[in-house]
Design a protein around this nucleic acid. Structure first.
Lengths: 303, 303
DNA sequence: CAAGGACGATAGGATTTCCGTATCGATGAA
DNA sequence: TTCATCGATACGGAAATCCTATCGTCCTTG
């Protein structure tokens, strides 16, 4: 991957926003002819025409317009790279912070937070709600001291202290035909249903657990749509657009429009763990480990 | 934005992933000595060592590790740009993207999503859960087509179509003494309580509404602690660490450990609106406006 | 223990990339 | 009809980046 294309994408963004090669060139601190050349090179590389040149300037084509959102995200992330580079240079640190997955907010987080408050009443604690993938990244970047996330084993240098596990349960729109019968549902009855899934990258342990549960029930889960967060997943179910397998930690929320049903048979569970970076075990992380051992007697070392 | 650094970051990413300068050079289509030079130039520019050279190759330092997640995301999204370009070449449509505040996920989002599905069954729709401040930024940056957010008026170039409003309600830990009496609570009884607040920057309309409601009740709200998301706010209440004023859109969730109680008297409400960028009204935004007008008959123009 | 291989680093010259300037072609406005 | 404006083409130059040759270090192998 040649990141040189990122620069040309920035050029294209400038032209699309200015609607004029000359003004975009001025904004970029260059002259107009080389900017024209760079845009042409980008169009050749992507194989689409991005800008329609008119007598009054340029405006994005349909394809150019469609690419703008992701190019803007790229530009924003390039800025984040730059600011992260500055922070690295400055060696900056953050106050005590933790990450927590949505599904652990109401069962695992409260005891942990109470314990930390008891141990250190004066300390500030920032809680950042995010999914497992983002929590892992935040730990690696040193943005948080520890996390409550769905990891099932150590990921060096990340250390994992399992705290417990939640069963997978079915989330169905209220009024769904499968709810006519009482009691736990056999997983196989979901075979023909549209599943609302989170991408694997968000929480691999949870994703893999539900895929293997479906396979053991004799069918391949088909992602009819993907959403970006656990809450949005439930919202799609509430909208009647599919069913989902979620952890019981999500089920405690009981959002309107969603009915939860236990699953029959051995469908397994997804674990919640305290996670921290073994190579930079901050004092806050050590405190959290101690509190977690006390608050969750079933907690055990993964090692 | 110094794209030279960004390009070298791409080189660094290749080395970090390969663990070997020679293999990374092959992947990048270049030879090993200039790659070494580029990495050294990057390290000099940043003033930190990114790679630890060993006899068997190279691996990232702690600072290098901190860069990898965002660089991987950049690389992944650059690939997405290329694959989206290929799809556009083939004549396919771009997906729709929207943002939605947590508290609107289960009352406002489902009708909107159902309407959009009915209008354009073939289009993909990505929902990104975020708070109002982030939704505004995502709209300004052009990363989403429209949003469901708590804005109470136009913010040029953002246009606002109010869809409805939610009353403020009190969220208290279960077992709280104030719950002993039945019926709505006068707001003044919260005067001595620790409040769990979201920072104003997350949702100014909601923040200002609750501050003015407290002042009208005769006391100044005191933020005993701040959290980063609406869900985390409720989690703190569940943990017994304070009370909160939240919109009734959050109360529909009924998380464990939290009791909601209506408030007596005129405490106002916080609105939910469809928001889009008036200067780049995408086809998806126009579709959402049309669907919203139909799905929410009370919707009216802010202008 | 010596020779060789593997790794990244240094050095010098060649090539590529990107830029500025001059100018062109097309087209609409005055 | 002339002129202005827009993006495109052409060419030369500077800077960036790359090539190959080789080095230095250190571990492995015979």
């Amino acid at each position: 991957m040649d990141f040189r294309i990122l620069r040309r994408m920035g050029h294209f963004l400038a032209v699309a926003e200015e609607g004029h090669f000359g003004r975009a060139a001025a904004r970029l601190g260059m002259s107009q002819p080389p900017l024209t050349a760079q845009i042409q090179a980008l169009e050749a590389e992507l194989g689409v025409r991005l800008l329609e040149r008119t007598r009054k300037g340029a405006r994005p084509t349909r394809e150019g317009e469609a690419l703008l959102p992701i190019l803007r995200r790229l530009a924003e992330e390039a800025k984040q790279v730059e600011s992260l580079a500055r922070e690295l240079r400055a060696g900056r640190h953050a106050p005590m912070a933790m990450a927590c997955v949505t599904s652990a907010l109401f069962d695992y987080l409260p005891p942990l937070v109470r314990g930390l408050r008891a141990a250190a009443p004066d300390s500030a604690l920032a809680v950042r709600e995010m999914d497992t993938a983002d929590a892992v990244e935040a730990l690696r970047r040193g943005e948080v001291d520890f996390a409550l996330a769905r990891l099932d084993r150590d990921r060096p240098p990340l250390r994992v202290l399992p705290l417990g596990s939640d069963a997978l349960v079915a989330a169905l729109p209220e009024g769904h035909a499968l709810l006519a019968t009482a009691g736990p549902l056999p997983l196989a009855v979901l075979a023909g249903e549209a599943l609302v899934l989170l991408p694997r990258s968000i929480s691999p342990a949870y994703f893999d657990r539900q895929v293997s549960a479906c396979r053991e029930a004799g069918f391949e889960p088909v992602a009819m749509r993907e959403v970006g967060s656990a809450m949005a997943q439930l919202a799609f179910v509430a909208a009647g657009l599919g069913v989902a397998l979620v952890s019981s930690g999500m089920a405690v929320l009981r959002p309107p429009g969603v009915a939860f049903r236990a699953l029959a048979g051995p469908v397994g569970s997804v674990g919640v763990a305290l996670v921290w970076d073994g190579e930079r075990e901050t004092e806050a992380a050590r405190a959290a480990i101690a509190v977690a051992r006390e608050a969750f007697p079933a907690a055990g070392d993964a090692a």
